[in-house]
Nucleic acid binder design. Sequence first.
DNA 1: CGCCTAAATTCAAGATGTGAACGAAAGGGC
DNA 2: GCCCTTTCGTTCACATCTTGAATTTAGGCG
Lengths: 402, 402
Amino acid sequence: MTSKHATVRDLRRTNRATVLSRLYFDGPLSRFELSGITGLSAATVSNVTAELVRERLVVEAGQVESDGGRPRVLLRVDPGYAMVAGVDIGETGVKAELFDLAMNRLAAVDLPLPSKRGNSKQAEPAAVVAQAAAGLREVLAGVDEDKVLGVGVGVPGTVEQEPVRVHAQTIGWHDVPLADLLCEAGVSVPVFVENGAKTQGQAEMWFGAGRGARHAVILLIGSGVGASVITDGTIYRGSASSAGEWGHTIIQYGGRRCRCGASGCLEAYVGGEAIVERYRAVRRGKAVAGADEQANLATLLVAAEKSKTAARVLDEAADHLGAGIANLVNLFNPERIVLGGWAGLAIGARLLPRITEAVRTQALRRPFEQLTIELGKLGPDAVAVGAATLPVAALLDQRGTR
Amino acid sequence: MTSKHATVRDLRRTNRATVLSRLYFDGPLSRFELSGITGLSAATVSNVTAELVRERLVVEAGQVESDGGRPRVLLRVDPGYAMVAGVDIGETGVKAELFDLAMNRLAAVDLPLPSKRGNSKQAEPAAVVAQAAAGLREVLAGVDEDKVLGVGVGVPGTVEQEPVRVHAQTIGWHDVPLADLLCEAGVSVPVFVENGAKTQGQAEMWFGAGRGARHAVILLIGSGVGASVITDGTIYRGSASSAGEWGHTIIQYGGRRCRCGASGCLEAYVGGEAIVERYRAVRRGKAVAGADEQANLATLLVAAEKSKTAARVLDEAADHLGAGIANLVNLFNPERIVLGGWAGLAIGARLLPRITEAVRTQALRRPFEQLTIELGKLGPDAVAVGAATLPVAALLDQRGTR
DNA sequence: CGCCTAAATTCAAGATGTGAACGAAAGGGC
DNA sequence: GCCCTTTCGTTCACATCTTGAATTTAGGCG
């Protein structure tokens, strides 16, 4: 309803949440600094922090002398207060990781998915759920469940919330109640599910190349292509959480067929799978036979040093990517664009200047000037890290609402 | 800074603002109904409305008997409390209108701009400012200025706020301090400036085809192409207010040259000017000589009844428009898309089914199913109406902050 | 005229943020 | 060693706000 505040108690919740968030993101801070940053009076900060300390969520962390006067006592969120798990469901495998509140990795496990290449559907929900539950059991082995805030899951498809329903047109998932399925498979901590591009985006925003930006777009270029749009600090979801499907925007009307059914989608030009495919087609089968796309793309990148054909394929991909990014620039006017995903990172490492130049020529001048384009800092684990931030996010803005 | 509430006084402001907004948008309401809608207690509603009535912003508006008990007294914002002006700066003319608070049109005037077709720049800022000021003088003649809340101006370019700077790549405006210029030209009421597509969008959201939607995109297809993206009820501006430049997104990589300098922009395929141009090219000069684009497009639409060539040009435009809309659907996942602008309304009246079908085949299935596509309800005056809503919007959320 | 119902207002209670006063913890000068 | 200064943190009286309950108001109906 009028979700905003009405009662004087909501005020307290809001203030608790902002203090807690500030402490979480801006590291150890003294009460004095908190007062300046949050705009709250010193009295209120004292009040709120006392509560948080009493609940053991926040702990003292040393002192800082302040020329002459009483030293400031630093406060920070206790990393050991709780743990969170993150699961990255990819098209070929499942990754499960365990973190403390400060996102230090405590455990990790990688499980393959049965590849039924013969079968049209790549991964049955049941098989995926089984592997995810197995992975979680492994990283949570010997851990007190009361200490686990929850588990976040990043999936390659759009996720509707309340109730959680996963749709992934490209791998044949429709209306999959993933959270419920995981519960039934024995996962007994709270489950949060979100699109993988969005979890990766949150990870880069919180800890990676997106830090400090209020408007940004984090790109996920793997086999497929996705994006996470951050508007004024929060992930944009649209009316049914499926916003940000950048990979299936059309940049070449009537162009190459895409696995989504339409023609000329960006994904058909710049997705890792598409690029490798393209190289294969251009060379008429004379190359890259292996099944591992990541290895194939690496081979292609090396080949481009000498082969003009290979270089041309990559340049073409970079130019099309530039067009796709230019569209984002014109539509969203972000201050930063971050290139992530295994294919994005691989291509970007070598071709970022060309990509940037392609954006410059195809975007409007003004918004381009207000933009920086960077590579992701968290590598391919970002999806799992971001998934694990979901329970943390819930903690940060619910603290007090419970 | 932490713009959100901190003190218990801000709470009052917020509640005043929500009550006032509710009264403004949802017409006459009783205190009892207000209590239900806003979630506030009856006591608070009584309190807040008493204040608003005392300030003459809200007045009683009749009664409604409620089976048996004390009848409810209806309250509404007093349309006569103040007036607002709206100016629509187009590429060929300036429109100025005066409204009361309920957006009843009290006066209107249309002034042409000196067309320097020979000159490369279409409209010097100075000439535009002079005409706008003249128009305002005319509609404000004999009006008590204290009663005028302010004037909103819709311009065909992006508008950076604080300080106001207008950039319009297509008509050669760079860094134009329009608000200041209007002040210097003798406009003595508060001036608000915003992109025309955005003001049109706000008008359709408040009073037209967008009512009730929280996520929507309002398209403005005139000579050029623009859009206003509404995310969760508010216009999306991006980091420097230039978000929503949909017309210059690329849908045909390497395609037709656009006046913005890039190739394959949507505007080069579906803008009113582009369509007429296209028809002229296809017929090799055999047609449409007049200078008035609107008349030319009308002619084309009639010709399409019989001429296959004309029909083909229009169908092609509709299909490309479908691709452009599909991109919006995939990126923003809106619940509604509204087609506006003189060209959009003209084409849509005849081709909406074809456009919708084109969207269906090119967008992802799920977000398409959650979408409706409609024509704008306010006609070509929407830009001016929306401009006039800017001071009203300021009133609605500042009431109490002042 | 009195009774009944429902809306609107009043009132006391509970919760919160704030500024000012107060207390605490250092360093520096003598 | 003592006192002063500086700066951070806490306490407390106060003003403001929302709320639920009690009370008042305004009509309909018998």
